[in-house]
């Protein structure tokens, strides 16, 4: 067991746990943040995507120790108060969800993508999101939502 400190959604956290536990399980089971999902546990589906110091990671294959002293953003921390993040709003407006189980991971991956490439080409979007599976296969709607998010960010600027 070890005491591990990190920041989640802007709040300082401290957990006393086995350092090799997957970050995903600590978020879900110790911190009650069940918005981050498990779809495979082997880094193949992206359902567990969270941002670690603004970079997307698969939290299912990331030991919690790795997060020491770092900043984590989960889907629960994305909206500010009642205001949805533009990417969340775009997914909602575009109806880019069927069962929605993939949505938290895909949304966070999109947020990271648009941070690094505010005007991605279609090929860059596909490339950026390819690690995230949607078994409902709602890819066309998701791509439309990402384009919408790019558009709305463009308008704001």
């Amino acid at each position: 067991m070890a005491i591990i400190r990190f920041t989640v959604n802007g709040k300082a956290r401290r957990v006393d746990t086995e350092p090799e536990r997957p970050l995903l399980e600590v978020l879900r089971e110790d911190l009650g943040l069940t918005g981050t999902k498990c779809g495979c546990g082997e880094g193949q589906c992206g359902a567990c995507t969270v941002l670690l110091d603004n970079r997307p990671i698969f939290s299912c294959v990331t030991p919690v120790l790795t997060a020491t002293g770092r900043k984590i953003l989960t889907i629960e921390g994305l909206a500010e108060d009642a205001r949805l993040h533009p990417v969340q709003q775009a997914f909602l407006d575009e109806g880019a969800m069927q069962c929605g189980y993939c949505a938290p991971g895909v949304i966070l991956r999109t947020v990271a993508l648009l941070e690094s490439k505010p005007r991605p080409t279609d090929a860059q979007i596909v490339d950026g999101l390819n690690g995230n599976l949607c078994r409902c296969s709602g890819y066309p709607r998701i791509l439309a939502a990402v384009r919408r998010a790019v558009g709305s960010a463009g308008k704001k600027r």
């Binding site: 879900r28 089971e29 009650g32 943040l33 069940t34 918005g35 981050t36 999902k37 498990c38 989960t74 889907i75 629960e76 994305l78 909206a79 949805l84 969340q88 709003q89 997914f91 909602l92 407006d93 575009e94 109806g95 969800m97 929605g100 189980y101 949505a103 938290p104 949304i107």
Partner: peptide
């Protein structure tokens, strides 16, 4: 019409069967 519970999905608030937690629950 888009999904009525869409907001809960995009915010991670919706509890899927694997997200249900009960007091004293074991895994």
């Amino acid at each position: 019409q888009i999904r009525l519970d869409g907001r809960d999905i995009v915010t991670g608030a919706h509890r899927y069967p694997s997200d249900i937690v009960r007091p004293g629950m074991l895994y």
